[in-house]
Design a protein around this nucleic acid. Structure first.
Lengths: 135, 135
DNA sequence: TCCGATACTTACAAAATAGTCAGTACTGGA
DNA sequence: TCCAGTACTGACTATTTTGTAAGTATCGGA
């Protein structure tokens, strides 16, 4: 696929936010700038490689900005650009919807996994997060 | 990954709409019920297999409803459930954002493809679609 | 001195996702 | 009769995406 025209704005959004962790990264940056390591700790289960790869892509796409403090050992922070801010805003209703239907969706996903005949390891439920994310 | 708790509502949304064509399907169904073949024609570039696979998943997840007219040759329609409707609504601002930044995002994607050193076959630009989709 | 932290990079392997192509069973039109 | 259309299924392959594990260079603290 080498096309660059979108049937619907959603396609365009997906072109930017497509990637397992990107929505989460944008979400967490909506609360202000963060260091790489902070993001790694807060975006549960990302591998270092994926985090950095996605951060680089989001930076290249102008969604976030990389601020290098030129220190040694390295100190780098990321923050949303205006472009990224506007995206994050539009993400909010969706996030709220997801939070609101959290339990229902969890049930759906569990059902799917049951049907795929795999074992489910239930985790202690964590309370759904608000928008914007806590400081 | 066998977890079913979400860090953020976005994760929950992605659990439902994750899949290359699902947002598009939901988008096109926001304009009313559609036959399988109609969707195939309107969701550009979907293969029959993927369309049907995604339709089935969305049906299983309660986002859309399958209506079988029990005719021969087969006549089946799909439409949004209330759950799906509420999702589609929250998708609208995102869709508008994507439409608004259509050209910019197209440039971003093209730049990415250039950097990946692949050939780009430019297509005639089609006008961005509105929300809700044309009937 | 050794360890851990900083922000990355790279090679490689695994998994998820998507795609092609053929086949099913039936009808209506040329 | 043959072909196209209906909605789908299944085998097989290809591509993309994600993950694992190691390495780089430097600093500060125990």
């Amino acid at each position: 696929m080498t096309e660059t025209s979108f049937q619907c704005g959603l396609e365009a959004v997906l072109a930017i936010l497509g990637g397992k962790w990107k929505p989460l990264i944008v979400y967490h940056l909506a609360g202000g700038s963060r260091r790489t390591g902070q993001l790694r700790r807060v975006v549960t289960n990302v591998s270092e490689k994926m985090l950095i790869q996605h951060l680089k892509e989001l930076t290249d796409d102008g969604v976030i900005r990389r601020i290098d403090f030129q220190e040694v050992p390295p100190h780098v922070e990321y923050e949303l650009t205006d472009f990224g801010q506007s995206l994050a805003q539009r993400l909010a209703p969706l996030c709220e919807w997801g939070t609101h239907h959290d339990a229902e969706i969890a049930r759906i996903v569990q059902k799917r996994e049951r049907e795929r005949e795999r074992d489910i390891s239930p985790l202690a439920p964590s309370s759904p997060r608000s928008w914007p994310p806590p400081g």
